[in-house]
Nucleic acid binder design. Structure first.
Lengths: 198, 198
DNA sequence: GGTAAATCCGACCATGTGGTCTTTTTATAC
DNA sequence: GTATAAAAAGACCACATGGTCGGATTTACC
């Protein structure tokens, strides 16, 4: 039982660092001092292995870092700001930052493997739905402008986050983070509830 | 001479569609009905081949679609809006859209191949510099708010674009584009020059 | 302690990979 | 026609890959 977990953990680690197609099963096995037999006892194939990683590890990871933190009854714009600030801060301090795990895999599998793509897109959808819900609730509670388009805002927010994570891997992640945060605050200010002039 | 061009064109095509590591030289050769000899007569290695593609094709592509359209003396926010609208419209109507070529390669090579990364990052930097310059000029000409942070805006704009291109490949690209455009307009409105109350 | 199932080993296979090298074709000039 | 060099062919190599399989080793249970 522990072996299966170890395989999945190291699997995600290496797939994230080196990419799925450029990581061999032997790479993972070598790192864990295991053999082919151990691997194919627990998993049918490399693809099956990866899908289980998505379901068991990736989905939870995204949930705990990007979805769960924005649940609540406070101002969603504040929650999202805090959530992104935390996530990006983690990335800045991570020596081995290769960008957002999810968006990297999306880029790698897009157009290549429909089965894997479906699983990845499911996570994207869950994030999107939760974002839209949070924003709509915030609108209902008077935090967002009456005219704000929550679906559009969610798309835009997700886009910008996926994007910075790519940019941050190139150079000067800390300054990229700072700039990004300042501008997303700016954007949030533009869709927040306007003070009524009474 | 024509053979070299054909190799590079099909190379970019396949690398974009299937990824660098999942595309073999034989794949490219087969599609062009050429042999190993032809390839290694023109290029030293697969990596050398790819770098030449970056320099000769990718760089120009990015320049013509994302940089050149925002040069000029008009309102940069208008130019960028138009530029993105065009680029995304092309993507929407492209059956084989696998996202932004540049950002896909960034995601694939990041942390794996420093040499390639340097070449890719160079393109990113050129785009960034041009964006910042355009925004600063726009500020000077009174199109942007005096307090607008041009570097930060550029980072944010680039991020959001890279991000939508990823999201658009998943599902409903047309609606994603519409939502994205509406929100980037919203953001632009928040950094444009405020009307002076005289 | 014995038995059976779960777990793991590691040799093996077919295939695909980047890359080399010799040979042949093709174009060019005289 | 022939010499010369550019261009392309394609057999070949060493190695890595995903996957298989019969057997060894643990583990759990009676």
């Amino acid at each position: 039982m522990a072996t299966m977990q170890r395989l999945q953990n190291t699997g995600l680690e290496l797939f994230y660092a080196q990419g799925y197609y450029d990581t061999s099963i032997d790479d993972i096995l070598k790192k864990l001092d295991l053999s082919k037999g151990a691997f194919y006892y627990h998993f049918e194939s490399k693809e099956d292995f990866f899908i289980q990683i998505i379901e068991n590890l990736l989905a939870r990871k995204i949930y705990s870092t990007l979805i769960e933190p924005i649940e609540g009854h406070d101002n969603p714009l504040t929650l999202i700001t805090k959530c992104f600030d935390d996530a990006l801060e983690t990335a800045v301090h991570n020596e081995m930052d290769y960008g957002c795990v999810l968006s990297n895999f999306l880029a790698e599998f897009n157009g290549k493997n429909d089965v894997v793509m479906r699983h990845l897109n499911e996570i994207v959808t869950v994030w999107e739905v939760n974002l839209v819900t949070a924003l709509q609730k915030g609108k209902f509670n008077g935090y967002l402008d009456r005219h704000a388009d929550c679906e559009a805002a969610a798309t835009f927010i997700m886009s910008s986050y996926f994007g910075v994570r790519i940019l941050m891997t190139s150079a000067a992640p800390s300054s990229k983070k700072y700039r990004f945060m300042s501008q997303i605050r700016q954007y949030f200010k533009s869709i927040e509830a306007k003070p009524v002039n009474s």
